[in-house]
Design a protein around this nucleic acid. Structure first.
Lengths: 339, 339
DNA sequence: AACATATGATAAAACGTTTTGTCAACTTTT
DNA sequence: AAAAGTTGACAAAACGTTTTATCATATGTT
């Protein structure tokens, strides 16, 4: 059987109260000698606190929930790892919830986490799903629960919330600038869904780079993808009869599609077409033609998200914070100077 | 504030006992009319059970723990997704624990999960780590806790345990057979760590295929890798002065290393060298030269693992089961017939 | 009319903690 | 020697459920 605080109290000839006080290092007037005695005893008897009891009594679970669309996606896996590593350091736990982009499933998770007295929720689902109304009501549900939350890559809530973000406008800007500085002028863009805040920002950055070079923006060289490999392929099919020397795929998955799409038309990277991605997926470094891309410090964002959540759980009156991370251009072999 | 069973009881002019009985659909002699009344009231008042209380009272948490080396690894992410999807269907939760291959961290997790009254543990860490003794003592700790566990890809415990496995000997066999049937006779092997049961089995399957063709096995064409991309690269460096027409990398990551290693020596796939991998990583299909490989139904294994765990938690006296899954040869473009 | 049975619901204990106000036994001060 | 202060520890309630034995009341049987 499990050994409880009462068992220890009995063995030591003390009361459960005393044992609890000592084991939690609570300010109290217990003598050093009994403190030592209890700690030794707890060690010897192999005491492990029963978290269900702690949780019930304190309504704290020392657990956070992570809600992501898909854990197989490297981006979310890395984020999860960051969160989880920090939780481990703090002796907290993380419940993983994957929604498969279903707002209904998201709702179920939110309610389930609530029932478990979760101490914080990291929300990594940003997409306004097809059924926007449930998506929105989920945000409201979340806010009404008064549980600390931290959102990634999104800040447009009604009330201020914790968030970890990158300046994607700048990301789009520096990537485009890279291509421009290599001499490219006819640049094709394969974007993310225009409904996403971050996707919009990236594109705005691209446009700003064009402006800074006094170049005219050409909408016909823009293809709206959906961040999938396939949409990268489709993008090239759409672009094939247009004139361009470089492609900016606004995430790496689409860049892979671009690679294969180009090779279908016998165009090689970077000889014929330069390609730049966004995300720095771990694969991008080991492709036959390593991909130039923008790196988001996703792992660090995950860690910071956990830090924010745990801090907010322990100091209920902290104001929401938004932590912004730097993006970095990683130049590899897929982009080259022309002319 | 949260609405409790007592609140509902009060509102209905009944006792908490009655409400609990009804809400859990327990066999009882409560009249249909009160049942309905309670259910309606619970709905209206937005009742959510407090799991901490349930957990404390029943010492059931309706939660399983998943222990993996690294969630960024596609294999484990897919496995996790399988588990998590099934948990979601059953309204259970999954706590994610990533060990980074540290047996100490594994131990901490096992103890933390125990403290949370976890109902089952899916162990996906198979590697006898550097410090074998902790690794082993962790298995014993796990067994001594009398919590249902399900191990993947490993069966050599002291006592029988639940497991989900593939017949890797057969996997090695059919992959090698594929190469042999294409006319290859000088085949190089880049294996996994010989300390791993599954890696050993795969290699045994390769040897059996050779025997079935009455061919002599050549140890000098075997390079022991460690399942990483780099060891695929290193394998080619080791093999470069040997004669071979095909490489069997015993996982896909190493196969990617092989691709790049070969291109370093100006050898192309499959014209000069055929390459076959193992795992069917999602990338293998979208490489410029799509990789022939052996597919493990990892997602299904994850689902089955969850099913086993939940069933074992609900029927404590079930005998351990070992579910075996079929491997499948996926022929793509990286292997070709010669002569 | 007296007893047995069926029906509907409840009282109360228990799960293992945390926490606060209280208490007894010393020690110091007056 | 009485009062005041200090020290060390505890009693008891509370958190929100689940569960079992029990209790009225109503219905049926002889």
């Amino acid at each position: 059987m499990k050994v409880t605080i009462t068992d220890i109290a009995q063995a030591a000839g003390l009361s459960p109260a005393t044992v609890s006080l000592v084991l939690n290092n609570r300010p109290s007037r217990i003598s050093e000698s009994t403190k030592k005695r209890i700690k030794v005893l707890a060690q010897e008897m192999g005491y492990r606190p029963n978290f269900a009891a702690v949780n019930l009594r304190t309504s704290r679970s020392y657990t956070i929930g992570l809600i992501v669309p898909d854990i197989r996606n490297d981006h979310y896996a890395t984020y999860a790892k960051g969160l989880e590593d920090f939780c481990q350091e703090m002796n907290w736990s993380m419940i993983l919830c994957t929604t498969n982009q279903s707002p209904l499933r998201e709702k179920q998770y939110i309610e389930a986490l609530y029932a478990k007295n979760i101490d914080g929720i990291a929300l990594a689902t940003t997409a306004p799903y097809a059924d926007n109304s449930i998506y929105t009501s989920n945000r409201e549900l979340l806010l009404s629960m008064k549980i600390p939350i931290v959102q990634s890559d999104l800040t447009n809530y009604k009330e201020p919330i914790n968030a970890v973000v990158c300046d994607h406008e700048k990301g789009g800007y520096i990537a485009t600038l890279h291509l421009l500085s290599l001499g490219h002028r006819k640049i094709a863009f394969i974007t993310g869904p225009s409904s996403l805040e971050a996707a919009q920002s990236r594109l705005n950055g691209c446009k700003r780079a064009f402006k800074s070079y006094n170049l005219k923006w050409n909408d016909s060289l823009v293809y709206e993808g959906d961040y999938t490999y396939e949409s990268g392929l489709n993008g090239i099919d759409y672009l094939c009869d247009k004139e361009f020397t470089a492609v900016f795929a606004l995430n790496d998955s689409m860049a892979y599609g671009v690679y294969n799409g180009l090779s279908k038309y016998n165009l090689s990277v970077p000889e014929d077409i330069s390609v730049i991605g966004y995300d720095d997926h771990f694969l991008s470094a080991i492709l036959t033609v390593p991909l130039t891309t923008i790196r988001q410090p996703v792992y660090e964002m995950g860690k910071e998200a956990a830090r924010i959540l745990i801090h907010a759980a322990e100091h209920p009156d902290t104001k929401p914070v938004i932590t912004s991370f730097e993006l970095k251009l990683i130049v590899r072999k897929s982009t080259r100077k022309i002319n």
